[in-house]
Structure formats: structure tokens, C-alpha cells
Design a protein around this nucleic acid. Sequence first.
RNA 1: GCUACAAGCCAGGCUAUCGACUUGAGUGAUCAGGUAGGAAAGUCCGGACAGCACAGAGCAAUGCACCGGUGAAGAGCCGGCUUCCAGACCCUGAGCUUGUUGAAGGGUCGGGAAAGAGAUAGUGCCACAGAAAAUAACUGCCUUCGGGUAAGGGUGAAAACGUGAGGUAAGAGCUCACGGCUUUUGAUGGUAACAUCAUGGGCGGGUAAACCUUGCAUGCUGAAAUGCCACGUAUAGUACCGUUGGAGGGCUGCUCGCCCAAGCCUGCCUUACGGCAGUCAGGGUACAGGGUAGGCAGAUGGAUUCCGGUGGGUAACUGCCGGAACAGAUAAAUGAUAGCCCACGACAGAAUCCGGCUUACCGGCUUGUAGCUUUU
RNA 2: UGACCCAUGGUGUAACGGUAGCACUACAGAUUUUGGUUCUGUCUGUUAAGGUUCGAAUCCUUAUGGGUCAA
Length: 119
Amino acid sequence: MKSRKAIDQLFKEGQRFSVPPFHVRYQFTAAELKFGITVSSKNFKKAVDRNRVKRLVREAWRLQKNELQLAVAGKNKGLDIFLIYTAKELPDYSLIEDKISIVLKKLLKLANEIPAANS
RNA sequence: GCUACAAGCCAGGCUAUCGACUUGAGUGAUCAGGUAGGAAAGUCCGGACAGCACAGAGCAAUGCACCGGUGAAGAGCCGGCUUCCAGACCCUGAGCUUGUUGAAGGGUCGGGAAAGAGAUAGUGCCACAGAAAAUAACUGCCUUCGGGUAAGGGUGAAAACGUGAGGUAAGAGCUCACGGCUUUUGAUGGUAACAUCAUGGGCGGGUAAACCUUGCAUGCUGAAAUGCCACGUAUAGUACCGUUGGAGGGCUGCUCGCCCAAGCCUGCCUUACGGCAGUCAGGGUACAGGGUAGGCAGAUGGAUUCCGGUGGGUAACUGCCGGAACAGAUAAAUGAUAGCCCACGACAGAAUCCGGCUUACCGGCUUGUAGCUUUU
RNA sequence: UGACCCAUGGUGUAACGGUAGCACUACAGAUUUUGGUUCUGUCUGUUAAGGUUCGAAUCCUUAUGGGUCAA
């Protein structure tokens, strides 16, 4: 997700849940699966640290996203997801990998519950 | 060999798998190449580049301040000058404890530091102590009782150049000798700062990183600059101006002064730029409000960096020849996992670009200097 | 990316270049049967490092930390 408008709309209308250290906001749409990540500069003062967290999250997302993508595409729907990293310590990759898989399972369950759109 | 200091260089490596950004080739699947720093940081200096419709003058403001060189430029760098600082060695030898001691002084040597113009252009300030902190009053001294004097006053960071002699009523650079500082003129050496010598004048403290004076320099803004394309909105609102000139804007912060500044249509003149006439307000300026916030250029190869050779220069630096290297994102790439090796990995991440300075930094290597030790 | 400002006890604030004050807090003592109030006393200090000056919180330079502004 890159568009400021879309992000604003997601934060205004979307639903949310929390899997520490992540807050997740999501909203089902008509387009495809989209994903964004943010890290607060309050928690990490250096841009380099923020970028590293973002990189790790993107890597974990890239490796695990396929199942969810298929589920959403199978119902002819889109899904906007935005993650907020809330911890104050630099994580290692295995932690991020675990937490992202939990997030994905929750989302997958939610995706299976909604009715399919008629295309 | 060890230790210390200074300067320079390097800043984990390799393999496999899966990715990200980007360049090239290909119709395409895909293939091939490239991808963080010495500080990318701080933003402390200096530029390039861009815009401001460029006419300047005075004032203000800011910066710089020994000389020469270097370089695109600089508050950078290199070399020199002057002053100061601590040291080593040598000479001399006060003192009393007569020694393997070393006060004051002189010479030589290399090293370090300096925002290093002006304190008789003016103004201000100088706590405490002290008679007094600056055109000399008080005490003292002398006196012909009108006055003269800055020797003595021991406090302080600082007290009217220091020592000795002359001189005098008492005194005083008042005079002289030696010495110190400052300065005029001349000579010699040096590109110059300056040095040496001669000569004349002066020596009424400190502070200019107090105000200030003198000299020199500086237009402002800053890639969120700037140019273009697309999408979208409001042909609406308020005020002012509108060819008989001007709302407003610019030139430097201020003043003066100067400059720029307006459309559509028709006709005539001109090669063109443009000019003249008619005509309308549909034009212009400022404000408020509304819309958009996408793309392209700027933008990454240049005063570039490194290596080798060869010249110039004490050096900084630089000429020529040959070779090699150089990311370019835009919610913003440069990553993840596994294995192996070693010295076990510090500080830290590009955002228009470049030259410096400063600061941070695990460790390793090279060179130089000094000291100690070992061997010959 | 660029421009600018600030830093004084635990807290809030003063201070011409000349002994760093004030209030609250904390601690101790007095008063009180005890506590509070009140009174007295004490502790705690110029962000760091250099420089100018006889002397620096103040002036200058560099660094550190914090903050503000500009689409």
C-alpha cells in the first residue's frame, strides 16, 4: 500500500486486531491483496533501524503470503492490510516469522468467513 | 624486539538458495551486469547549479584581519615572519649543608602554540585589597608660605620603563651611561611579512572573543530551487486597478532613486521586433476559498577518485602519458536463510553534486620519529 | 532538505565579566501528648571540552542533548 488516500480510508473505516508486537488493520475491498508496514520513530530514532524492521517484515510476508492470496482471490475480493510495529527492541527474523504466520492465520480465517463476491 | 607519538591505508571474506532497486539485450519467457561510507553524520566554512522582469547610491548588517603560495573558492592546506611557552645541552657560578648542589643571567638546538590590524581617534569597564585603578587627590618631602613635587606609601592580575650616576630647596627621563619597548627617515638583504645598521622622536597601566575605529569582502533565496505534462476545481466571492495610466511587484534589511507591470477582436504601417488607431471589460493585482498532491526533467561521469610511469615545486599542489573505478531510491532498493574460514567484525546507511573542517569508531597493516633492551 | 532557538540544585525560575540567589521539595532540630501549621538550620549547582581575560553561568569556538519553523 502506497497511496495516502487508501491508508487514510483504511484507518478510518477498517477493522483491527492485535498480535503483539503488531497492531493489524484490515479492510476487504474489491481490488487485490495489498499490504503495508510502519514503524514509529518514537520507538526507533534511527531511520536505519526502522528500515531494518520493515525489511524483515516484508521478507516474512513475502515467504508466507501465498495461501492468503489464493483464498482472497478465490472469492473475487481484495484485502487491504496495514501492520504497525509497536515494540521498542530490534527483533530478530525468527520472531517476526512466527508472529506474521499467526497474523496470516487469523486473516485467512476471516477471509474464509466472508461471502464470495459475484463477479 | 618492545613501548609511546604522528601520518597514511583497510573496515570481515567465500559459496549456495530465495528476493528488492536499477541498466542493457530480447516480441516474450528470460538472460547478463551494477547496487552503501571513511565518516554517507554534524551543517561549521567554501563553491557548482537554479530562480528572482537586475540600475544603482547612502546607511545598516554580517564576515575576515602578519606575509607569500596553493586552488574554482574558503575561517581549508603548505611554506615563511613575529611574539610567547615548556624543554635539552653548554657557559657562568649566588647561596651554605662544601655537594653527583645549582639562584639570577647568557648562548646553541630542535619542538609546540597563536581569532597575530588599531589601546596618544573616542566612549565604557577594571570586584576585593590599596593613599591612588588614571589629565592625579591624600599622606609624605621641600618651601621665600604664593606654592613645588611624583623619590618613599606594599596592596593588587595590573601602580607612570629598569639599574646606576649627575642634578635639586625637595624631586622628577630633568640630564647622562647601559639596557628594554614603540615609532619617523635612510641604507643593505628579502617577492613580502620582516631582519640588521645608522638617525630623529616618544615611553600617562590593562581590556577591542567591551562598544568601537581602520582596511577588505559580501545581492537575496535554496532541489520542498526551477521548467514542463496530465488529472481535477468555482465561467463563483471580496477589495483595488484598468491606455487621461497604473492595482501591485522587483532591485539588498531600511531610505532615496530606478526599473517592471495588464488582455480579446478589428484596421493600418513595418522584412521582423514592434508601433498607431478603434472597441469591449471577457483583462490584471491582492486576499480568502476550492481542487490536485500523479508523471517527466533537474538527477547522478565530475573543478571526480585511485594506481603506475615521468617532469615542475622545500611543500601544499600540479603538467603529460597509460590503465582502472564510479549506487540512484521516491512510504523511499542495497536484504533473508544455511554452511565454511579467520584477526570473531567498531562507528554507522546515500536523497542535487563537489572541495574542506569537526565529531564517532572493534581492530589490523605500512611508514617515520623518540626512548629502552639484545646481538654483531 | 534547509533555517533557527534553548540548556543554572529534585522542580520552577533570578543573576552589569567580580562571593551563584529565591520559592517549593527533601533531611535534621525546636514548638506540640501526637500530627499538621509555624520557626531555625542543612543538603543538592551553571550540559561537556578548549580558548580570551587578573577573573567566565555570562564573551568566543567545538561537541552533546532537547526543542521550534518552512510544502
